[in-house]
Write a protein that binds this DNA or RNA. Structure first.
Lengths: 133, 133
DNA sequence: CGGTATCCCGGCCGATACTG
DNA sequence: CAGTATCGGCCGGGATACCG
C-alpha cells in the first residue's frame, strides 16, 4: 500500500496538482486565491457588473478585482460582456466551465460555514491547552 | 430577484464568508491557501509523517509546511500524533471535520485537473486575441 | 527525525490619482 | 461607470542555521 502507483486511486490524469510544475496548480490558485473564490461564488448567483461585484465581495479593491477577473477570464471561467454605451456597461458571468468550478467551490464554502462552530471550538481548545505553555 | 434577501438561496447561516469580518473567511483561506489545500489533499490518502508530507507536497518548505499544519490543527482539521520515541515520530491525519473539507476540496481539485485542456485552450485563445494589441 | 529561529527579498495588495 | 498607472508597505515564503 505504500507503492506510489496506488497513491491516487483513480488518477491517471495527465495533470497532477501535487507536482510543482503542473499548470493545474496555477489555475487552482486563481480559483482558490484570496479573491478568486469569492468572485466565482458571487457570480454563481448571476451576472454582475463591476461595481456590483465590488460591493458584493466585501473588502476587495478595484485593482485586485480587476486583476482577479482578468485571470479568471483568461482561464475561461468568466465571460466578460462589454457594451460600448455611455456610460459604459460591463457584465461578468460564469462560463459553463466556471459554473462547474463554482459549484464545487460553493460546496466547500458552505460546508466550512456550516462547521464554523466546531472550528471555533477547536480553536479555543487549541489556544487554551497550548497557549499557556 | 435583486432584493438582497434572496441572494443566497438556502442561506440563513450565521457565518457568511462574503463578509469581510467573518471568521469563516480566515478558515477558508487556511483551507484553500497555497499549501493548505494540497496538505489536506495529501492527508486524505492516509496518515503521513512530516517529511513524507514534505515530499508529497512538491515544493513546500519546512517552514511553510509547519506553519500550515499548525493552522489546520488549530482549526480542528488535522490531528497531530506525536510519539516520544527516539528518533521522534509524528503522524498527521485528518479529523472527521478535515475529511469533510478534504472531500469537497478534492472534488474541486480533480475537476480542475480534468478540465485543464479546456483551460489551456481558453488561455491560448485569450492570449492570441488580446496579446497582439 | 521533526521541528524552530532568523534573515531577507519579491510581489501581493491597498491607496491614490488619473483616463475614456 | 469601468477601469489603468504608479507608489509603497507589509508579509508570504524561501534559505539557512540551529535545537531536542
Amino acid at each position: 500500500m505504500d507503492t506510489t502507483q496506488e497513491r491516487m486511486e483513480a488518477q491517471d490524469l495527465p495533470y497532477d496538482v501535487f507536482a510543482k510544475a503542473c499548470p493545474s496548480r496555477g489555475t487552482l490558485e486563481h480559483v482558490t486565491g484570496r479573491w478568486g473564490g469569492l468572485t466565482l461564488g458571487a457570480l454563481y448567483e448571476g451576472s454582475l457588473r463591476f461595481n456590483e461585484l465590488r460591493r458584493r465581495v466585501d473588502g476587495v479593491s478595484e485593482k485586485m478585482l480587476s486583476q482577479t477577473l482578468h485571470a479568471l477570464e483568461r482561464d475561461g471561467l468568466v465571460h466578460r460582456e462589454a457594451q460600448p454605451t455611455n456610460p459604459p456597461r460591463v457584465d461578468y458571468e460564469l462560463t459553463a466551465l466556471g459554473r462547474g468550478v463554482a459549484e464545487r467551490l460553493l460546496s466547500l464554502i458552505h460546508f466550512v460555514e456550516g462547521q464554523m462552530d466546531d472550528v471555533l471550538d477547536a480553536r479555543r481548545h487549541y489556544d487554551e491547552t497550548r497557549g499557556t505553555l
